[in-house]
């Protein structure tokens, strides 16, 4: 049996659209439920709220005793932004050394850097925790930010090395003739031309840090230092009273920065994944 071409096209579009809707359904349902009165979330079928309300947002924002979700957002933003700036600066410095400068042991260190990309973080976990514990850094943002100032996300160094290698060496040479040293070449030639790689690094560092539940769970232990993921986790402890409306509202807010980033930089994100294999 062969189907005519238009019919096959129609079936293809229908499948792609319906399956796409099924894929997004949980997220759409989350958004719709966050806007419904608590009593309607599980009783009213369908997506469109018969009654809109922001009460879940108000309740969720203030659900945790003495502090509001505003504080969690502030903490998450501070950590994420320091992580972004740290990765941009220190990964690009290392990548510049690896791609443009000569020094003893370069090959050895480059191989070491590549090997650390695949390394599961668990293998350094306990000693790192002990180090931060001895420094008195537990329950501060330092264990979450200082590693980013030390270029420990080797993946991004690799990404930048690949990119820097594509920038013509002739540019460096003519800059040297003009009297530029390595610092000027780095800051005036390489960095401005490497904008796509820097942007990819910034976007993915932000997303990963924003979503990074494991390290934040490990290192932050009092409510006033909590980040958004830890704030959401608190809802698990509230037994009895149904708080799903509030949970959904805060969940929507927690996803918002990533969604905004995605829609602003959609092309870069998709290209970043396609060309380098970074995962969202």
């Amino acid at each position: 049996m062969t189907w005519s071409l238009p019919l096959r096209k129609f079936l293809l579009y229908a499948f792609i659209i319906i399956f796409g809707f099924v894929m997004l359904y949980p997220i759409i349902w989350l958004l719709a439920s966050s806007l419904k009165p608590e009593s309607l979330i599980f009783s009213e079928p369908g997506l469109w709220p018969s009654e809109f309300t922001l009460e879940n947002y108000v309740k969720g924002w203030n659900a945790v005793g003495d502090v509001t979700f505003g504080l969690f957002f502030k903490n998450s933003f501070v950590i994420s932004i320091i992580a972004v700036l740290g990765n941009l600066l220190t990964c690009s410095m290392a990548a510049f050394a690896f791609s443009r400068l000569d020094f003893p042991l370069k090959k050895v260190f480059f191989s070491c850097m590549l090997l650390t990309i695949m390394l599961p973080t668990h293998v350094t976990l306990v000693p790192q925790y002990a180090i931060f514990h001895n420094l008195g850094w537990i329950n501060t943002i330092l264990p979450l930010t200082v590693p980013k100032l030390l270029a420990t996300d080797a993946f991004f160094i690799f990404l930048m090395v690949q990119f820097f290698r594509g920038i013509p060496k002739e540019l460096d040479e003519s800059a040297i003739i003009d009297g530029c040293g390595p610092f000027q070449i780095y800051s005036r030639i390489i960095l401005p031309l490497a904008e796509p790689a820097l942007l990819t690094t910034a976007i993915f560092t932000f997303i990963w840090t924003w979503d990074d539940f494991f390290s934040q769970l490990l290192y932050l232990n009092t409510v006033e230092n909590f980040t958004v993921p830890l704030g959401l986790r608190l809802f698990l402890d509230s037994q009895g009273e149904s708080l799903w409306g509030a949970v959904f509202a805060m969940s929507v807010l927690s996803l918002l920065p990533i969604m905004i980033l995605f829609f602003l930089f959609q092309r870069q994100i998709v290209e970043g994944i396609a060309t380098t294999g970074v995962k969202g």
């Binding site: 990964c91 290392a94 050394a97 040293g181």
Partner: peptide
Amino acid sequence: TAYLFLLPWLIGFFGLV
């Protein structure tokens, strides 16, 4: 100069990895 650029990574690599 090269090691100056590499310094943050070197500290991180030896100290944290």
